[in-house]
């Protein structure tokens, strides 16, 4: 058995320097990420009001969430929004990327890319206000043209059956350009030699896409789905500005419920419990996507 060698002075100095380098990041991470997460979990088991008296309530907050018809409806709204927003954002982003990943004059290419990407860089709050004028029932732009064409007007934001669709439409308009840019970058990584060989072999375009392009860019598609899902599950400002969660609860999301309970009704513990539920849902959905990805993502 050999005795452990004592680290040299140089190694010790290097280690110390290393620790010093990671110290600021670690402190920031502990303070602004880990500590709030731990605090949220602790608060989710409590009724918290420092002035009227706080107390432990065990699983009461979670029980309230899972037995309240309203909170379950809001959870369902959030999942519904996530499914449609992710599906359309990613698929339309991919279609636009395929459409723009071809030979065309440079200025036209940049024009289209800019046109589709521009909504991404505009603040959601501003975009939502503009869309609220488009979606207006009687004085709205879209219904004006529908009526001029002799078509019936649609209650875009004031009918429970169409309000969520309207929000998905705005969300896709706003965010699909981001996925388009990611897909364009991915498509440019597909080896040209393979595509040229497929063309020379007379492979139809749809088969080129499903057999060559899609497998090559599948890790990027997977990233986009996970990224879009996490964002959609936390949707907040666009709904608040367009419908404030209404009519009734038709478009209310979990994030809105958290803010309303925590900062409107001072149910800090209950809001923390909903946050914990939402985090677990995001983790579970991501884990399912990760597990399913083994079947279709090329490693």
């Amino acid at each position: 058995m050999t005795a452990l060698r004592k680290p040299s002075d140089l190694r010790r100095t290097q280690a110390r320097t290393g620790y010093l380098f990671v110290l600021p990041t670690s402190v920031l991470y502990l303070t602004f990420v880990l500590a709030p997460v731990i605090l949220t979990v602790i608060l989710s088991f409590a009724y918290y009001d420092p002035m009227l008296g706080s107390r432990w309530v065990g699983l009461e907050n979670f029980q309230r969430f899972f037995t309240d018809r309203r909170s379950l409806e809001i959870l369902w709204n959030t999942l519904r929004f996530t499914f449609f927003a992710v599906t359309f954002n990613v698929s339309i982003g991919l279609i636009l990327a395929l459409a723009l990943n071809r030979a065309m004059p440079g200025w036209l290419l940049y024009f289209f890319r800019l046109a589709f990407f521009l909504p991404v860089i505009i603040a959601a709050a501003f975009v939502s206000i503009v869309w609220s004028y488009f979606f207006g029932d009687d004085l709205g732009v879209i219904n004006y043209f529908l009526r001029v064409l002799g078509l019936p007007a649609v209650r875009w934001l004031t009918d429970a059956s169409t309000a969520m669709t309207s929000i998905v439409i705005m969300d896709v308009w706003k965010n699909t350009g981001f996925f388009m840019i990611i897909f364009i970058a991915a498509l440019q990584g597909v080896p040209k030699s393979i595509m040229e060989a497929a063309v020379m072999d007379g492979t139809p375009a749809w088969r080129q896409f499903f057999r060559i392009t899609l497998p090559y860019i599948s890790p990027v598609v997977f990233f986009c789905i996970v990224y879009a899902s996490i964002g959609a599950l936390q949707v907040y400002e666009s709904i608040v500005i367009l419908t404030q969660g209404g009519p009734g609860d038709a478009t209310r999301s979990l994030s809105i419920l958290i803010v309303e309970q925590g900062f409107g009704s001072f149910q800090i513990g209950y809001a923390a419990a909903i946050s914990v539920v939402m985090t677990v849902i995001i983790l579970v959905i991501t884990a399912i996507q990760q597990a399913l990805s083994r079947k279709w993502v090329q490693r």
Partner: peptide, 10 residues
């Protein structure tokens, strides 16, 4: 919340 739901007919 209920008022807007009632006014919209929901």
């Amino acid at each position: 919340r209920h008022y807007t739901a009632m006014m919209s007919g929901q």
